[in-house]
Design a protein around this nucleic acid. Structure first.
Lengths: 228, 228
DNA sequence: GATCCCCTTACGCATTCCTTACGCCGCACA
DNA sequence: TGTGCGGCGTAAGGAATGCGTAAGGGGATC
C-alpha cells in the first residue's frame, strides 16, 4: 500500500515490538530507537514520514526531543504518553506535536490516527532509496553507489549526504544541517560542515566551483542539485 | 494573533456558544452552523481555515457531512463526538477527519489541538514567493529571478530586496530598513543604504531617476513600486 | 596494537561588507 | 544670478568574513 517509514522512539522493547507488528501489518516500514539520542540521530539519518514518540524516555525529557526535532525538521510527530492531564497534552501539542495519544490505547484508533497524519502528506513522503543521476542512496542499509560502484561513506558523511539529497533542489541551511546531525548545541560550528562537505565532494568526485551535486549557497547553506 | 476563521457545526446552541467564547478568546473568528445543510453551505461560502464538526446532528449523519465536504475540499476537520468506541473514531478518521475529540473534553486541550491543526497550514497560507512583474523572489530559497534569469544577490542585497518587495507599494523608512538589516545600533547609517540600494538597482537594471522597482522618497525612505 | 573515524586547528583565497570620497541636483537665501 | 548646504547617487579600495583545503591528534573499535 505504501512504503512510508515510521520511526518509533520508545525505551520499552515490548511496546516497540507491539507497534512494529501493528504498523507493519498496515504496510509501513518501521525504524526503532530506544533512546532520545538515538531517536534524533535516526530522524536525521532516515528521514521517516512520521515519528511516534513516547514521552517516558529515561535519558531525556521527551518534549526536549520534540523541540530539538522542530529546530530543523517538520516531520509530523505523534506523541504517546501515560499523562492524561490537559497541561501535558497542551504542552506537547504546542511544542509542535501533531497528535497526542494516551496509553493504554486501542491499536485500531492508533492506526487510524497514523493514517490521518500521513494522508495529507503523501506527496512529501521520501522513499527509502533515492536515485539522482548516477547516484543511488539507500537509507535502509546506509549504502550509496556512484555509477554502480559502491561508495565507502562514514556515518557522518552518509548523514550529510542523505540530509542534502532528501531535500534535493531545495536550499538547506547550515543551521538545519548542524542541528540535525551534530545536535542543537553545535548549531554554530559551521567548520564541521565545511570539512565533511569537502570529504563528501571528494568521494562523489564533485567540484566545489563547478558542482554536479552539492552547490554552495554562500552565507546560507547548501543545495543538492536535481538530477536531470 | 490570527485572523483565521473557524466554522463550528453543532445543533446545540450552548455548545456553539461555549466553543465561540473559547475560540474567540484565542483570537479566531467563529462562524456557527446548526445543521448539516447550513454547515456545508457555510463551508463552501466562507472557506474557513478549520471545521469543528459535532457528529450528533439531527438532520443528517455527521459522517455524511464529512464525506460530502471531502468531495470538494481539503479543509481540516476536527470531530466532536460522544462515542468513545474505537470503531467510531476509526470511521471518522478514515473518512478524512484530522482529529477526533470525545465529549466531554477539556477546553485547553481542544484549543491546543486547534492550534496544532492550523499551525501546519500556515505555510500554505503564507507563501514565501513574491512575484512582481518580471521579478520573482523566493524567501525560502534565497533566490530571485528577473525575466526568468537568475539574479546573483549577496545576503545583504537579498535582505534589502525582500524588505522592500514584501512591503510593495508602501513607504519604508530608512530607519526601518537599517534597524531590520543592520540592527538598531546602525539606525543612523543611511550611507549603508545608499550603497546597497545602488547595487540592487544595478542588478535589477533599475534607474534611480526613472525607476521601475525602487522609488526614492527623498528625506524619508524608499518604496517598491507595484507591478501592474 | 592497528585501523578507522571524528573532531579540531591552521591557512590561503575569493567574495562580501564596510568605509571613505566625491559629484550632482534641488533648494534656500541673498 | 551666484553661493552654500543637505540629501542622494556613484565609485573604489581596504577590512572582514566565509569557504575550501590540508593535516594531525585523540578515542573508539576490532
Amino acid at each position: 500500500m505504501t512504503d512510508a517509514r515510521i520511526l518509533v522512539i520508545d525505551d520499552e522493547a515490548p511496546i516497540r515490538r507491539f507497534l512494529r507488528v501493528a504498523l507493519e501489518a498496515d504496510g509501513y516500514g518501521v525504524i526503532e530507537a530506544a533512546t532520545a539520542r538515538a531517536g534524533l540521530a535516526s530522524a536525521a539519518r532516515e528521514a521517516p514520514a512520521l515519528v511516534v514518540l513516547d514521552l517516558g524516555l529515561p535519558d531525556a525529557d521527551g518534549l526536549s526531543v520534540l523541540r530539538d526535532l522542530r529546530g530543523w525538521s517538520q516531520i509530523p510527530v505523534l506523541i504517546l504518553s501515560v499523562r492524561v492531564d490537559e497541561a501535558g497534552k497542551v504542552e506537547a501539542l504546542d511544542a509542535g506535536a501533531q497528535d497526542y495519544v494516551v496509553k493504554p490505547f486501542g491499536v485500531k484508533e492508533f492506526l487510524a490516527r497514523v493514517r490521518s497524519l500521513l494522508r495529507d502528506r503523501v506527496s512529501e513522503i521520501q522513499p527509502s532509496v533515492l536515485t539522482i543521476g548516477p547516484l543511488r542512496i539507500d537509507a535502509a542499509d546506509h549504502s550509496a553507489t556512484l555509477d554502480s560502484h559502491p561508495l565507502h561513506l562514514t556515518r557522518r558523511e552518509f548523514d550529510l549526504l542523505w540530509m542534502l539529497a532528501s531535500h534535493r533542489g531545495r536550499l538547506v541551511t547550515q543551521e538545519m544541517i548542524l542541528k540535525a546531525i551534530w545536535g542543537t548545541a553545535h548549531a554554530g560550528d559551521s567548520q564541521y560542515l565545511r570539512v565533511y562537505i569537502r570529504q563528501l565532494r571528494q568521494k562523489l568526485r564533485d567540484d566545489a566551483t563547478n558542482p554536479r551535486f552539492i552547490m554552495t549557497e554562500p552565507g546560507i547553506g547548501y543545495r543538492f542539485l536535481e538530477g536531470s
